[in-house]
Design a protein around this nucleic acid. Structure first.
Lengths: 143, 143
DNA sequence: ATTCTTGCAAACGGTTTGCACATAC
DNA sequence: GTATGTGCAAACCGTTTGCAAGAAT
């Protein structure tokens, strides 16, 4: 996560990309969100202040931020991609019913280094830990 | 993973589902595959012996097997769902370029019990560990 | 002035759905 | 004979793409 929008602007400039109003508000919406929103969630959020922004722009900006390593997509088993501006090491718990996602933090983030044979020749760039379960609200509902 | 197709038939009967030719060959195709195929991969495989099977049936059967806990969907960040008949605890390495998936086994499969505050009230049903990287073939290609 | 970016709308692709016919039991 | 499952095709929906108009530098 970039600490401030000024830092985002710095990264964009440094890489030769323009600093646009849309990129700033999209990044801010994700940074201020705590519930791992989808592209459409972000779109609905930013539309409140910029009613003519397009969903396509949201997708293009999110893809760019991800390529720059500023945000991550969260791994779920479901149809819709979810995003997270928090790049510190942490896991996720996903509700199998409503797909709500919560963060899991550890005092010491777990590490699972792989040995040579486990790597199968891959270069490893990252690791994620992911729990599946049911959130408190969905546990109360009838099946 | 169910050891044999006879066991699959047993599970289906026990739950009140019919044992059909299609379900048997779909499960077998997945069980015998080592590369975490997509629904369409499985469809192309079973079509070789049963040319009039439909892709819809493949999807419906896979969903049923997943609900019965006989197979799992593999967590990738990409558009297409991938399936695995191996239900023993293991992780996956996914190539960010070609999306090839390899298994990761440990002598002692890692466990990460969560404490009360980490669970956020969720009931936890499972955990998965997931590496992102680049496979040997894609490392050789130019970007 | 030039390059990059946006908004729009159509296209795309994996998945789901509805239903008449077929199959398992 | 009845309930369940299949094949087919259309619908669905999140995402991507192409391009003319607009904004950033």
């Amino acid at each position: 996560m970039v600490d401030t929008l000024e830092t985002l602007a710095g990264v964009l400039k440094e890489k030769g990309f323009n600093v646009t109003h849309q990129r700033l508000i999209i990044y801010r919406a994700l940074m201020e969100s705590k519930d791992h929103p989808s592209a459409e969630d972000i779109y609905n959020q930013v539309r409140q202040t910029d009613p003519i922004i397009s969903l396509g722009t949201v997708y293009k900006s999110l893809e760019m931020f991800e390529n720059l390593g500023l945000i991550q997509r969260v791994n779920t088993l479901y149809h819709t991609a979810r995003y997270d501006a928090d790049m510190s090491p942490h896991g996720h718990i996903v509700c199998r019913k409503c797909e709500r996602i919560m963060d899991v933090f550890w005092k010491e983030p777990p590490e699972f280094p792989l040995n040579k044979s486990q790597k199968h020749g891959y270069r490893i760039d990252g690791m994620s830990i992911h729990y599946v379960g049911m959130c408190p609200e969905c546990q109360k509902k009838k099946p």
